[in-house]
């Protein structure tokens, strides 16, 4: 029960903290929570089950476009859109996993297939006029709970925090049940996993489905926060890479390392942009890159590994 209690305490603390943040602080809060949820979702497939995806934007984008299109064209409530987004993300994940893993492709091949699928979807959506093509879709501002729109940023803080909480709960439940060991065994050694009675293909497909469903859940919240989506922002490679990067920097495979990575890197990006971008174009990205290299060099097991080593040393 301990991890659940700890999670509850952390979420309560964050929820209590949010009202006291500045508007800008709340903006960062929303970004961290949403990116954090994507990173946690990515980590279920990439870290826990060991199958690296380079295309998680596919799920976020599919979720964002599904709920937004349904709302704009058919007047379907974004709440229903949110549920449908998760279903679509899960179905896409399962389909993607089944087509690739059944052929015993994994590692770099799986990564390339996910990258290709996300990019293909980006270009297809960019050419569908019903979805706004490359111009994207703008959502008219009609703040109300029914529309999943809020008058203040605080509302979005809580919406984003809720999605993050769902992802965290799913991860804890996986970790404490048989599925957690199925993922662990697949990640560590597929031959041994099969010899122990684990259906490796099925396990990977389940991981992809759960991961896709959770990532897709972020899409509608993001769309309603920004009130505008276009293919590049939700299907783009940048988002896919971010999910992977936050997980690597935070600590691959650890349950909440990816969240730690997000908590550090997202504000860092914003900070660097604020401090440096005005002086020399692109300099903030260079500094960001240098910091990433340093973290990977000095903490190959991620910030989470660094932290747990430090705690272990303190105890010893």
């Amino acid at each position: 029960m301990k991890p659940m209690l700890l999670l509850g305490a952390v979420i309560a603390l964050l929820a209590a903290l949010a009202p006291f943040l500045s508007i800008y602080g709340q903006h960062i809060f929303v970004l961290v929570a949403l990116y954090g949820a994507v990173a946690l979702a990515w980590n279920i497939l990439g870290g826990m089950a060991g199958q690296m995806s380079l295309g998680h934007a596919l799920f976020v984008g599919a979720g964002a476009y599904l709920s937004t299109a349904l709302y704009l064209k058919l007047g379907v409530s974004p709440w229903i859109g949110l549920v449908l987004a998760a279903c679509l993300g899960g179905a896409l994940g399962a389909l993607m996993g089944y087509t690739v893993f059944r052929r015993k492709l994994s590692g770099v091949y799986f990564a390339l297939v996910t990258l290709a699928l996300a990019e293909m979807t980006l270009h297809i959506v960019s050419n569908v006029s019903a979805l706004g093509a490359a111009n994207g879709l703008a959502i008219p501002a009609r703040p109300s709970l029914a529309n999943l729109q809020f008058t203040s940023k605080l509302g979005y803080c809580y919406a984003a925090l809720a999605v993050l909480t769902v992802a965290a709960i799913v991860i804890i439940v996986i970790h404490r049940t048989r599925l957690g060991y199925v993922f662990l065994a697949i990640r560590e050694n597929e031959r041994s996993a099969a010899a122990l009675g684990i259906d490796v293909v099925q396990g990977k497909v389940i991981a992809a489905a759960i991961s896709g469903a959770l990532a897709a859940l972020v899409g509608p919240i993001y769309a309603n926060y920004v009130l505008f989506i276009d293919p590049e922002s939700v299907f783009g490679i940048t988002l896919s890479i971010d999910a992977l990067l936050f997980s690597f920097v935070g600590g691959l495979g650890s349950l909440f390392g990816p969240l730690l990575g997000t908590v550090v890197l997202v504000p860092l990006t914003e900070l660097l942009r604020g401090m440096l971008a005005g002086r020399l174009a692109g300099i903030h990205l260079i500094v960001y890159g240098v910091i990433l290299v340093l973290v990977m060099r000095l903490a190959p097991r991620g910030l989470w590994g660094l932290l747990s080593d430090a705690i272990a040393r303190r105890r010893a």
Partner: peptide, 21 residues
């Protein structure tokens, strides 16, 4: 030998207990 190298010995065996479902 094909152990799950980066997890504990106990977790290796728990995976065996849970594997056959």
């Amino acid at each position: 030998v094909q152990p799950f190298r980066d997890v504990s010995v106990l977790e290796n065996v728990i995976a065996g207990v849970l594997g056959p479902n």
